[in-house]
Simulated assay, not measured.
Amino acid sequence: MKLMEGSIDLNKKNEIRKSLNKNKGVFYYIKRDIILYLMLVLPVAYILTFKYGSMYGIQIAFKDYNMFEGMSKSPWNNFETFKEIFASQQFYQVVRNTLVLNGLDLIVGFPAPIILAILINELRFKKFKRVSQTILYLPHFLSWVIIGGIVAQLLAPTGMLNSLITRSGGDVLPFLTNKFAWVGTYTLVGVWQSAGWGTILYLAAMTGIDKELYEAADIDGAGRLRKIWHVTLPGIKPTIAILLILQLGNIMAINFDRPFNLQNNLVMDYGDVISTYVYRVGIQSANFSIGAAVGLFQSVICLVFLLSSNFISKKMGEQGIW
Results as ranks from 00 to 15, higher is better:
Leu164Ser: 11
Tyr137Phe: 15
Ile118Lys: 01
Tyr202Gln: 01
Leu101Val: 03
Gly208Pro: 02
Val151Glu: 02
Leu154Ile: 07
Phe125Ser: 03
Leu142Phe: 15
Met160Lys: 09
Pro111Arg: 14
Ile120Asp: 03
Ile150Pro: 04
Asp105His: 12
Gly149Val: 00
Thr199Lys: 05
Thr177Ile: 03
Phe128Trp: 09
Leu164Arg: 08
Ser143Thr: 15
Lys127Glu: 04
Pro111Cys: 10
Thr158Leu: 05
Val145Gly: 02
Ala181Val: 02
Ile118Ser: 01
Ala195Gln: 08
Gly109Gln: 08
Leu99Gly: 09
Leu119Met: 15
Leu173Arg: 06
Ile200Ser: 11
Arg96Asp: 00
Glu122Met: 12
Val189Phe: 09
Gln133Val: 01
Ser168Gln: 09
Pro157Asp: 12
Leu154Pro: 04
Gly170Met: 00
Val151Ser: 04
Leu155Asp: 05
Ile147Leu: 13
Ile114Tyr: 04
Leu173Phe: 14
Thr158Asn: 14
Ile114Thr: 02
Gly170Asn: 00
Val145Trp: 05
Thr187Leu: 08
Leu155Asn: 10
Gly198Arg: 15
Tyr186Phe: 15
Leu138Ile: 13
Tyr137Pro: 02
Ile114Trp: 02
Pro157Asn: 09
Thr187Lys: 12
Leu106Glu: 13
Gln133Asn: 06
Val191Gln: 06
Leu173Lys: 07
Leu173Cys: 01
Asp105Val: 00
Gln193Met: 12
Ala156Pro: 04
Gly170Arg: 00
Leu176Gly: 03
Gly103Phe: 15
Val145Lys: 06
Ala152Leu: 14
Ile107Met: 06
Asn102Phe: 09
Lys179Phe: 01
Thr177Phe: 03
Val131Gly: 01
Ile146His: 05
Phe180Gln: 10
Pro113His: 14
Ile114Gly: 02
Ile200Leu: 15
Phe180Ile: 13
Asn162Arg: 13
Leu161Val: 15
Thr187Trp: 09
Arg130Ala: 07
Trp144Met: 08
Ile200Ala: 13
Leu119Arg: 12
Pro111Glu: 13
Thr199Ser: 03
Leu123Thr: 09
Ala181Lys: 02
Met160Ile: 14
Phe180Tyr: 14
Leu176Asp: 04
Ile107His: 01
Ser132Cys: 07
Leu106Thr: 13
Gly198Tyr: 12
His140Ala: 10
Ile165Cys: 07
Ile107Phe: 12
Gly190Phe: 08
Gln153Leu: 14
Arg96Asn: 10
Ser194Arg: 07
Ser132Gly: 00
Gly196Cys: 12
Arg130Pro: 01
Ile165Ser: 10
Phe180Trp: 11
Ala204Ser: 13
Thr199Trp: 06
Lys179Tyr: 00
Ala117Lys: 08
Gly196Pro: 09
Lys129Gln: 15
Gln193Pro: 04
Thr187Ile: 08
Leu136Gly: 00
Val189Thr: 15
Thr199Asp: 04
Arg96Ala: 06
Val183His: 06
Lys126Glu: 12
Gly208Met: 09
Asn121Lys: 08
Val145Ala: 12
Asn162Phe: 11
Ile107Lys: 00
Ala112Glu: 02
Leu104Gly: 05
Ala112Tyr: 04
Leu116Phe: 10
